[in-house]
Design a protein around this nucleic acid. Structure first.
Lengths: 186, 186
DNA sequence: CTCACATGAGACAGTCTTGTCTCAATCCCT
DNA sequence: AGGGATTGAGACAAGACTGTCTCATGTGAG
């Protein structure tokens, strides 16, 4: 891990905990002098922008790695479900890098990040819509709502882990089951 | 609505959009001079604290209004489900006042708010646990996870409305169905 | 009309933040 | 060991934020 990466990771952690963290806070958290921090990112906005870019990269990689495009093309419930499981698992694997704090507040100011977000969001929605057509997911809900629900369940996972409500190893199972099957007893 | 309430409402809106908003921003958003803002809340922390208190008040009112305690006492699936529906609907009714941005970042600094949060959270978890015992909710998930899932689905709702993905009038239905039944076709 | 009161504008000092710069210490490669 | 690059500490100026204060304006009740 390069020093730059370490700084970004620390900054993400810090900013997720407190969006008001100063550059000094960020440098300290990274175990680095403030001057060094500024050597890597001349401006706070530049740091934020890179953070956003990385998050979007991760998101994109997750979708590519889970084979979203192929699953959509297949149009089959089986592959789509497998893809969805894989995708959620990947999301969960780095949901602190993924930056929930980040998703909302900073992105708005950067049109390029906004556009990419929208694009990725659409691709995810396309997967969910394909799941509906294939009979995997209920079709009486707007697929864009399903996309929001995915986001929500990830926030729930983050919340649960942060407050020590569930063990990290149970996460995948809990998230998948809750998203697909809901919470009603059967 | 008193001027104080108007200021609080504007501040909440503002801070949810950007936690770094300055007192000047907050005053402007409330359509009020900065001096007046300081007349009501001598300190930023004082404003934040009051905001937190109000959110917790709302939460508490929702649970009381939905009859959480009675539902738990009944131990019956029917009343518990009705209570849960009512509760979610109440949460949704004021999820901007409810302060999602607020729940995480500011609360930590105020022990009294933290404690109240924990207490309310426990009461909500108790309802969900009662739902499990009554055979309404699946019992193979930790009730504390269910509580996180409730939080997550509310974040999803907020996200969906913010980005115009679904109409507000569909919210209750979407949230309830998704939480209870999940997203799998049947 | 008048007076008490609340408000907005803005001055003000103190503090914090940001971005730049310098310098000495340290590290690493040869 | 020598020499170039990187680092941390810290000085520095510019600007922003906070909290306090004053004063002129405006509003409403009596």
């Amino acid at each position: 891990m390069t020093s730059r990466d370490a700084i970004l990771a620390a900054a993400q952690r810090c900013l997720n905990a407190d969006a008001r963290a100063s550059m000094t806070d960020l440098a300290t958290a990274a175990g680095v002098g403030r001057a060094t921090l500024h050597r890597h990112f001349s401006t706070r906005d530049e740091l934020l922008h890179e953070l956003g870019t990385r998050s979007l990269d991760r998101w994109q990689q997750s979708m590519r790695g889970a084979g979203v495009a192929e699953a959509i093309a297949s149009g089959q419930a089986g592959p789509i479900e497998a893809c969805l499981r894989d995708l959620l698992s990947r999301y969960l694997a780095d949901f602190d890098d993924f930056g929930f704090t980040l998703t909302d507040p900073y992105l708005r100011s950067a049109p390029d990040l906004m556009e990419r977000t929208e694009q990725l969001s659409e691709e995810e929605t396309a997967l969910l819509a394909a799941g509906q057509r294939a009979g995997l997911l209920r079709a009486d809900l707007d697929p864009r709502w399903l996309s929001s629900a995915v986001y929500g369940i990830l926030v729930a996972a983050r919340d649960a882990v942060t407050f020590g409500r569930i063990a990290r190893r149970d996460l995948d199972e809990y998230v998948l089951v809750t998203f697909l099957e809901g919470t009603r007893a059967r």
